[in-house]
Amino acid sequence: MFEAKLIQGNLIKKIMEGLKDLVTEANFDLSPGGVSLQAMDSSHVALVALMLRGDAFENYRCDRPRSIGMNLVNLSKVLKCAGNDDTMTLKADDTQNNITLVFESQAEDKYAEVQMELMDIDSEHLGIPDNTYDAIVKMPSAQFSQIVKDLSSIGDTVTVSVTKDGITFSTSGDVGTAHITCKQNTSMEKEADHTTVNLEHPVTLTFALRYFVTFAKSTSLSHQMSISLSKELPVMVEYAMGDMGHIRFYLAPKIDD
């Protein structure tokens, strides 16, 4: 038996916003420690890794580790039945091939129960090495979102360059070229507004911009996000959800032919 209740049920809605444009179906790995997911996009260029700790839930029960496959388009439809302030309970009986989602209003005056079929999904699990990155930049997630959206109307690829002076996003297209630099800035009162650059070695990498736009759909999960870069390695874009868990995106760079 698996059962987990989230007081802030809309957390799952927010997570799905970031997932559904990247992968259409995925296995959720349920274990006593929590819920995790790893899935690649169909072109095997980007990967999403989600982790939600068991203690992020109000009551969490997972009797045995199990993978449950879900169609994320269908899950998004089901989640429309949940109000933004509703609690959300997920229930899956080990002997059944379905999951039950229960949405309850905070005032306990509305109760919705939806059952959704599970599916068998063949998925490749990749081992992601624990990298020491050349550069880690933390910045407000809204700012990152705005930058990648603005640049995506100018070009298709983005060159990300980190030096001790800051992080620069550059693109070019028919319209012209654009460079946006964010310098380290810790003068604001709120830490979530800070931009910090942790640099071991200067690094420059080029990526397909549209993936960054997709990753930025997770902006509502966290005020801060981080970009971790190493020479000739996939970039890691992370949105940490406090001590509840995280969603991480990996994107393979463009390389010289």
Binding site: M40, S43, H44, V45, A46, L47, E124, H125, L126, G127, I128, P129, T157, T206, A208, L233, P234, Y250, A252, P253, K254, I255, D256, D257
Partner: peptide, 13 residues
């Protein structure tokens, strides 16, 4: 430039 795939960097586990 060409787009690399993730499997070039991460191994299947």
């Amino acid at each position: 430039m060409s787009q690399a795939k993730l499997t070039k960097f991460f191994t299947k586990s």
